[in-house]
């Protein structure tokens, strides 16, 4: 990566490959599919991946710091479900939101604490807290899989907000992407995340507060999940907690990782998330226009993703001597 952060086009990496595939698909769809290259459809593509993209942004920050947050979907769905349940049972809006904020903060802190101070691998911590958050909220706090938004509530109104005919999610996604970009690139703490992800021990030795920052990242990810959850509820006027058991979680990791953010940490940025989201968005949109059944869509999606990582594996083989232990 050079100083400005533009990709190095001469050396084709995973990001480049994915980006190239996305461009190719886009071109093919624009030429071959009627109604693909319309402003409305392009907005729809971005909108359809914006919640996914927002979650992937949170995930990206965690992954760059050499972690992973498998509890993101659970936090997203369950925090909002609990919020709506509180509203439906008559708790005042302010208080309910305060409860939910506190809950989200607590889970973020718990994740961070267990990873940073108890040295438990992130994948297990977040797998466990994700399961716990879903289980606890589902069994103790709400009564049904799906919780509707009370009529006339601001969350419902949020779903209808438009600027220039573009849904609000797109702006939130763009805004968050820009914020995360600024944070990662131009703030001290943002740069520290790269150091900590690249070599935690060295980062600690030069005085980076590695552990508190780990906690911060998980709290950040939890709040991003809450935002994504609110947007989902806003557009659907309800939140269905079954989403926790769906493949959404895998999709988030895929969007983040397929764009070239290494799971071993220290590499990648917002641009990689955007590239990953673009590929998934274009792919799904084009397949829906062609009216391919969902089952085949999954197959095609998986095949293209597999192709992308295989090409990357062949072009950039990993070296036995420099590969990190435990980097799976």
């Amino acid at each position: 990566m050079n100083a400005i952060g533009w990709p190095n086009w001469r050396r084709l990496n995973q990001e480049g490959i994915v980006f190239a595939i996305a461009i190719l698909l886009f071109a093919a769809a624009a030429l071959g599919l009627p109604g693909f290259l319309t402003a409305d459809n392009l907005v729809a593509i971005v909108r359809s991946v914006s919640v996914l993209g927002i979650l992937a942004l949170g995930m990206a920050v965690v992954i760059i710091g050499r972690g992973i947050d498998l509890s993101a979907v659970a936090i997203m769905a369950m925090s909002v479900a609990w919020y709506l349940q509180l509203l439906n049972t008559g708790t005042s809006d302010g208080l309910a939101f305060l409860y939910v904020l506190a809950g989200v903060l607590a889970i973020g802190l718990l994740n961070g604490f267990l990873v940073a101070y108890a040295d438990v691998p992130a994948i297990f911590v977040t797998l466990a807290t994700g399961s716990f958050v879903f289980g606890y909220v589902r069994s103790q706090l709400i009564t049904q899989d799906a919780v509707p938004v009370p009529g006339g509530h601001w969350v419902e109104l949020l779903g209808g907000v438009r600027f220039l005919d573009i849904p609000v999610e797109v702006f939130v996604f763009a805004g968050l992407a820009f914020l995360v970009f600024l944070f990662l690139r131009y703030t001290k703490w943002g740069r520290f995340i790269y150091f900590a992800g690249d070599n935690p021990v060295a980062a600690r030795n030069i005085g980076v507060p590695v552990r508190p920052m780990l906690v911060l990242r998980y709290v950040l990810s939890a709040f991003v999940a809450l935002i994504a959850g609110l947007l989902t509820a806003a557009s659907l006027h309800s939140i269905n907690t079954r989403i926790v058991n769906s493949t959404l979680l895998y999709d988030i990791v895929l969007v983040a990782v397929i764009g070239g953010i290494g799971l071993s940490g220290g590499r990648g940025g917002v641009r990689n998330v955007l590239v990953g989201a673009a590929l998934i968005g274009i792919l799904l949109n084009a397949m829906t226009i062609i009216d391919i059944p969902l089952l085949y869509q999954n197959l095609i999606k998986a095949a293209i993703l597999l192709g992308a990582i295989i090409v990357d594996g062949i072009i950039n083989p990993r070296d036995e001597q420099t590969a990190q232990q435990g980097d799976i």
């Binding site: 493949t247 895998y250 990791v253 895929l254 990782v257 397929i258 799971l263 089952l295 085949y296 999954n298 197959l299 999606k301 998986a302 095949a303 993703l305 597999l306 990582i309 295989i310 990357d312 594996g313 062949i314 083989p317 990993r318 590969a323 980097d327 799976i328």
Partner: peptide, 25 residues
Amino acid sequence: LRLRAFLTTLVTFIFGRALFDILVT
């Protein structure tokens, strides 16, 4: 090919699942 296990098996998982769903249907 030395691909990363987590990502690779995640994708083959989705692939296999999709294939199974098609076949079973």
